[in-house]
């Protein structure tokens, strides 16, 4: 029943996910592909447009550059980048999601409506013109500002970063202390390798962070979905009433009812569903690119020693995580998300 409603809502309110500015591919090199919102995967080509819900992935030798209405987005190798949207304060906000890898953002001009930037561990509000986001294998984030200002928020705590400042945000934790960004080019590969080593050295601690992050996503999905379910019947009733008005009174009155009652209700319901999808897809990203990759690394490591207590304990925790994901997040996903 929930799945049927999700599919129906996806069709009905999917249109809300089409309003963000598309990002045009201006450069590609090596392995770079786009997974469209429909699920189709194609090689990224100069001139392609990425729309909300599309994901660009680069491989070992891949690079890409996008232009989104004056924002230059430089995507490094081994990176996963998605255009998303969510509702905030009654408005639809574009969200640039760096799930894995490194991306440099350069804003050629600021309009005051800059998209949010999100990773597995933080959301950043942008008032800056040039900064780089590194999204690590363990779900943590490193953000370094070259110029302007960026506000980084996680777990209810926010940090303002000015030019030459940076901060690290571990998965499921508030931002750490700010640091001065070194003048030489930051070595993302080494930072990421260190994060991966630390995660593999203590996979149970990593699982705790992942499970905690999932709890947050589940809470948001459950809250927005419950409210959506309250609004949806109201919208259905209002649509029936409009038909009745048109039949019993006049088309003019039905149009007025449409503008005064149905349109705001439809917008509100659409926004609620947008947020259900936003948090579900964010949970899927973490599940796929942090939890799934951790599983894969440990599976390789323990394949010849499956009775090792670290592996068996990890498996038990991972199964619990998967069950929770399957129960709370999967019903909000559609086949094209997979």
């Amino acid at each position: 029943m929930k799945k049927t409603l999700t599919c129906a809502a996806f069709v009905l309110f999917g249109a809300f996910a089409l309003s963000a500015a598309p990002a045009d591919v201006t450069y590609t090199e090596g392995d770079a592909s786009i997974k469209l919102k429909t699920g189709t995967v194609q090689d990224a080509q100069i001139g392609d447009s990425m729309n909300t819900g599309d994901t660009l992935r680069t491989g070992e030798d891949g690079l890409a550059e996008l232009d989104q209405k004056g924002v230059t987005i430089k995507i490094a190798k081994n990176t996963v980048f998605t255009l998303m949207e969510r509702e905030q304060g009654g408005n639809t906000s574009a969200v640039l999601a760096v799930t894995l890898g490194a991306i440099k953002f350069r804003y050629n001009k600021l309009t005051g409506q800059e998209p949010l930037v999100r990773t597995n561990s933080m959301v950043a509000g942008v008032r800056g013109t040039e900064f780089t986001v590194f999204s690590g294998a363990d779900g943590s984030t490193l953000i370094a500002v070259d110029s302007g200002q960026v506000t980084v928020e996680s777990e209810g705590k926010s940090v303002d970063l000015a030019a030459t400042e940076g901060v690290e945000v571990p998965l499921g934790k508030p931002p750490a202390d700010k640091f001065t960004v070194p003048k030489e080019l930051m070595d993302y590969s080494k930072w990421n390798a260190d994060k991966l080593s630390a995660m593999l050295a203590d996979p149970l601690a990593a699982m705790t962070s992942i499970e905690n992050a999932l709890v947050e996503y589940e809470k948001n999905v459950a809250d927005y979905y419950a409210t959506f379910l309250k609004y949806k019947p109201q919208l259905d009733d209002a649509r029936q009433k409009r038909a009745q008005i048109a039949k019993e009174k006049s088309v003019e009155e039905a149009t007025k009812y449409q503008d005064d009652v149905i349109a705001p209700l439809a917008l509100q319901t659409g926004h609620l569903y947008l947020n259900v999808r936003y948090f579900s897809l964010a949970a899927l990203s973490m599940r796929r690119f942090v939890a799934g990759r951790l599983y894969l690394s440990l599976k390789s490591r323990f394949i010849t020693n499956p009775d090792d207590p670290t592996w068996t304990e990890f498996l038990s925790r991972f199964d619990r995580f998967l069950s929770s994901f399957e129960e709370s997040i999967a019903p909000q996903l559609v086949a094209a998300d997979i």
Binding site: D31, E60, L296, K299
Partner: peptide, 13 residues
């Protein structure tokens, strides 16, 4: 039960 979507990750496995 894990879907591996990145080519380098398949090679790493």
């Amino acid at each position: 039960g894990e879907i591996v979507t990145l080519k380098p990750d398949v090679a790493s496995f």
